[in-house]
Design a binder for these strands. Sequence first.
DNA 1: CAATACACTTAGCAATATGTAG
DNA 2: CTACATATTGCTAAGTGTATTG
Length: 756
Amino acid sequence: MSGDHSHSEDQVDGGSRFNDSHKHKDKYKEKEHKHKDHKKDKERDKSKHGNSDHKDSSDKKHRDKEKMKHKDGSTDKYKDKHKEKRKEEKMKSFDGKVKKEKENGFASPHVKSEPEDDIYHSPKHEKSLKRERDDDNDSEFKPKKIKTEIKTENDKRAKKRKPDEDTKSKKTKNKKGEVADGKKKAKKEPEEKWKWWEEERYTDGSKWKFLEHKGPVFAPPYEPLPSNVKFYYDGKHMKLSPGAEEVATFFAKMLDHEYTTKDIFRKNFFKDWRKEMTAEEKAKLTDLKKCDFSEMSDYFKAQSEARKAMTKDEKLKIKAENERLLQEYGFCIMDNHKERIANFRIEPPGLFRGRGDHPKMGMLKRRIRPQDIIINCSKDSEHPKPPPGTKWKEVRHDNKVTWLVSWTENIQGSIKYIMLNPSSRIKGEKDWQKYETARRLKKCVDRIRNQYREDWKSKEMRIRQRAVALYFIDKLALRAGNEKEEGETADTVGCCSLRVEHIKLYPENDGQEYVVEFDFLGKDSIRYYNKVPVEKRVFKNLQLFMENKEPDDDLFDRLNTSVLNKHLQELMDGLTAKVFRTYNASITLQQQLKELTSGEDNVPAKILSYNRANRAVAILCNHQRAPPKTFEKSMQNLQTKIDAKRGQLSDAKRDLKSAKADAKIRRDEKSKKTVETKKKAVQRIEEQLMKLEVQATDREENKQIALGTSKLNYLDPRISVAWCKKWGIPVEKIYNKTQREKFAWAIDMAEDDYEF
DNA sequence: CAATACACTTAGCAATATGTAG
DNA sequence: CTACATATTGCTAAGTGTATTG
């Protein structure tokens, strides 16, 4: 870890900036909004600064500039965009249809390899290797053993696999045992956890050989309002057609939300609503302001009250029905194992609410029907049946992808998928692989850092830009920043898409030199605010990049994510911008744990240390949350508890003292015992008090920081597991049930000496 | 290239479940 | 038990990144 040099300090340092950021944010909050909707706080606050000072500095760096190959003065980029998403289907031809009888509601997967061979004839070579435990630095996430794989001749995509996975091919058939075994497990019995991480993985680019599922669960059909719930237009009652009424109810349900007051939201809604109206309705309803949805709104509120007030029995019934649905639709069979599906319900229709300042907010998200749905499953499985009287759009058998169901969503035209749960083999393998890639970066990060530092001096503008951007990505854990189409989404940026208006340069600030102030909205319109001192060369480069540009010009006009990633790919196999986030997050956790954990601490104190380490990462990655609505109150409650405990403690101490005095006089066994008991009591209370205090600290520090995202997505779980083992902390203290399921592989394989 | 299509990860908040104090 | 606080799960938008297409 020596290689992580000062970098780590920067990052931890970054912590203080976060507080600044929040102060800033809070101040802003007070100033600008009353805010009933905390979401709003995050929404764009275009700072007025940044416009003024990019010009004045322009003469300074002539020399710098002369050296550069500025192709032309223009700041154009690849900026034009227009998009129409539509996609065509492609069918792959597979022949051979073998249906197995069902078991457990699923056609049973072949239990031996023979049938497979029948189905997918012409196996070519393949390989697969047994994975090995990765406890040591050197291990790679790579198959170590060759496995049989089957390629279909007409499978066009067979070539897709990664080069490194392709390198050698050998034919080894060793599947049977596993298969037979797996089949048993796929049966009714709960199945002892399957350790997929001890098995070989596919190396031919296929994601599965057998896939069977029941298809999606559709949103419940619209239930028209009872006739006593009326809609009024311009004060007059008006009965809406079912189609128009449904859309109206979507709006009515959101009436309390602030965004129904937003112009864009209303405009988009009204436009889409009108599309659902009959001709007469369309003619009559011309002004949203004259629409009165209040009865509808009240009705839904009453409904939700009624739901809350349901008897236990009724609630149980609903629960049971949900459970039934889960059992029927919530699982699939993939390669001999029953696996949990993540999202088997189709998204119900409603009004789109993007995050931040979204140009499409309020648009109608339409209802998805069977004919919109593409099913993906294996040919030799029992295909899911569409609801009676309907048809799927398509049933395909593409084992180069992991999804079971897809459809195209109408707001952005993007594709939505039903996929497996994070606990599934297919997700877990990928996750594991992600951390292995980050660990490989660890081995060469010094080299890469040296290289980009060199590149700050390059005579080519694009290389300098690339190097400065990479520096930000590395040092500040910024996201890559793909370009987005204007007008389609909220205006947010990442590193490569930063604009001049998003940074401000201070040759000197608060006693520090070369300070860069970042202020922009990132993913989910979460504000990133940070002031960081940077190296002089970086600073000078930034001045250069900003020269003669307007605030809304791209800072890195000769760079985009694709160029950057191509470069990274050359530096290390599998390296992309986001690997830096994973790497820096994980290495920071490891370092912080090392630094903060103290052997003498008791369990709660150690856990506080863990949370603090986790927090350092969350800060680095800018994972924020709105302070919980009940935050103040809950802090207060905790404080009350603490005070009470303190009282208890002094009482107990007093008791102890008198018991001691008593014992001194009486000198008998009984009083000695009393002293011991009292001592114990004091100790216990002290411990409880400490626990509460620690809890208070933890909570306060966590006010607007979300730990979950980094824990789930950026921190190599083996670091946490190893830490738990090393200090004798039960892993349940760190990971809840879902998390333990997701990280089962890590919990099983990491030893106390694991090093990221 | 550059635009587009696609697949899959990452993200915060809302809804729901669970725990706990009264 | 209820009421409330807190933890967990669900939801789905919004990113990243690669392959395909023009």
